[in-house]
Simulated scan of single mutants.
Amino acid sequence: MMNERLLFPSEPSVYHLNDIAVIRLEGPDAIKYLHGQVTCDVTALAPGQSTLGAHCTPKGKVLAIFRLVRREQDLLLIYKKELTDIQLAEFKKYAVFSKVSITDISEQYHVTGIAGTGTDNWLNNTVHGNANEIKLQVAADRWLMLSEKQPPLTLSLPEQPAADWYGLDILDGIPQLSKRTQAEFIPQALNLQALHAISFTKGCYTGQEIIARAKYRGANNRALFILQGHSAKPVTTDTVLERQIGEQWRGTGTILDVWQKQEQVLLSVVLASDTQHDSLFRVENDPDTNFTIIPLPYPLD
Rank of each mutant, 00 (worst) to 15 (best):
A115Y: 02
S268A: 12
V269A: 11
T57E: 08
S50R: 12
Q160C: 06
L52W: 06
A140Q: 11
F97L: 09
N124G: 15
C56T: 09
L34G: 04
E184P: 02
Q176M: 00
K179I: 03
A95C: 08
I20R: 15
Y79Q: 03
K149L: 10
T275D: 07
T292L: 15
Q193T: 01
Y109G: 00
I134G: 07
G203Y: 00
P152R: 13
D120E: 06
T237E: 13
G246M: 09
F200S: 05
I174H: 09
R70A: 04
L280Y: 03
G173R: 09
Q37F: 03
L146C: 04
E90W: 00
E82K: 08
M2D: 11
Q264A: 10
I174F: 08
D29Q: 08
V38E: 03
W259Q: 13
H230W: 03
P12F: 03
F185W: 05
F91Y: 06
V14H: 12
E107N: 04
G251F: 04
Q193C: 08
Q244P: 07
N132C: 03
Q208I: 07
D257G: 09
D29N: 11
K80F: 00
T51Q: 08
D141E: 00
T292W: 10
S231Y: 01
D274S: 03
T239K: 13
F291E: 04
E4V: 15
R67T: 15
S199H: 02
A212L: 07
L256S: 11
S98L: 00
F8T: 09
V240K: 14
K233A: 13
I78Q: 05
K32E: 02
I210T: 14
P161L: 10
A212W: 01
R243T: 15
F281Q: 12
L146E: 02
W249K: 14
D141A: 00
P297C: 02
K93N: 05
S10H: 09
G167F: 03
F225H: 14
G118T: 08
G129K: 04
I31C: 08
R71N: 13
K261W: 13
D169G: 04
F281L: 12
C40L: 06
G113A: 07
L195G: 07
C204N: 01
T275H: 10
Q87F: 09
F291M: 10
L63Q: 11
Q262P: 05
T154Q: 15
L177N: 02
V265Q: 05
Q182N: 05
A272T: 01
Q228H: 13
E11A: 11
I174M: 09
I65E: 06
K261I: 14
L256M: 12
V270M: 10
L136R: 12
G218N: 04
G251M: 07
L157D: 07
Q73L: 06
R67I: 08
I226L: 15
I174Q: 12
P297Y: 03
A30N: 11
S13D: 01
L83Y: 01
P12C: 09
K149Y: 09
A232N: 04
E184W: 06
N221P: 01
T119A: 15
G53W: 00
A54S: 07
N220H: 05
H35I: 00
D257K: 10
G167V: 04
L155M: 14
Q276G: 10
